[in-house]
Design a protein around this nucleic acid. Structure first.
Lengths: 146, 146
DNA sequence: TCTTGAAGCTACAGTAGCTAGAGACATTAG
DNA sequence: CTAATGTCTCTAGCTACTGTAGCTTCAAGA
């Protein structure tokens, strides 16, 4: 049985994050010692490692919740897990495309800045006037992660 | 003078977002009509357009705040604006690199899934065991935007 | 002039995914 | 036994908004 600090070190997850995961039901409530401290089994470590790894790949906690509940039913077909992973992949591809075009735009902007006075600064100018810019990065919504 | 709805449409920014920007001091407090409704000048539209455009390029509100205060002093050298833009560029390049490696990893994972049962699912398996994975996407911090 | 529907107002709560801090209790090494 | 470290709960904060409730104001048509 591990205390929370050891579990955290073993899985590479910070202590408050573990407690947070428990709070939102991603980890089951931990057993407690006589003095009310959380105690974790090897199984809990596996689960937390799974979560950390999936987070590292950019899966949302909701997606991870689904993957975890799938992994609890090993006889089911794995189409659902596959679908979640594919969705995540296409999400990442979308972000990549968008970031690539932002990069081009920024590079252009920075390259044009001659280092003079603000009044002549292309950075400021381009930001102030959309018509000076090539791309139309016009979808101001959308939250990323990682 | 524009009301908030027209300003929003003109700049491509939602009404609550405009009020939010005012609340956090990114936009100055608007003039008010006799009936207490916000009224905006052409200058306010320019400022909001600037903000929207910069947000579209992924600048944080803090960076935008700095850029705006720079643009209010047109005789200063523009090195500071240049630095902000360059920092943003390198931030985006970092994210691009990271996303690209996540994509590779996810693709590999998805490709290996034969579509059988969960018990044999590579997606679940890879997520559960970091040693099965090539890259070390091990920096679980970092907030993206756009 | 009256009415009606759209647009605007304030204030507060909620989102994701944590992180940080206060103040008290538990455990362990020496 | 003491001191140091670890853990506990609880609350608030972060970014950049978005959504809701319950109201008031405005502009256009009858």
């Amino acid at each position: 049985m591990l205390t929370i600090g050891k579990l955290g070190r073993a899985a590479g997850v910070k202590i408050p994050t573990i407690r947070y995961y428990e709070q939102i039901g991603l980890l089951p409530e931990a057993e407690r010692s006589a003095g009310n401290q959380r105690l974790y089994s090897r199984k809990a470590l596996d689960r937390l490692t799974f979560i950390r790894h999936a987070r590292g790949l950019g899966f949302t906690l909701e997606a991870i919740r689904d993957l975890l509940s799938l992994s609890d039913t090993p006889d089911q077909p794995c189409a659902a897990a596959d679908a979640i992973a594919k969705a995540q992949l296409s999400e990442i591809e979308k972000r990549l495309t968008r970031l690539a075009s932002l990069k081009v735009e920024l590079k252009r902007m920075v390259a044009q800045c001659a280092g003079g006075r603000i009044a002549d600064c292309r950075v400021i100018e381009v930001l102030g006037d959309h018509s000076l810019c090539a791309t139309d990065h016009d979808h101001p919504q959308g939250g990323d992660s990682q």
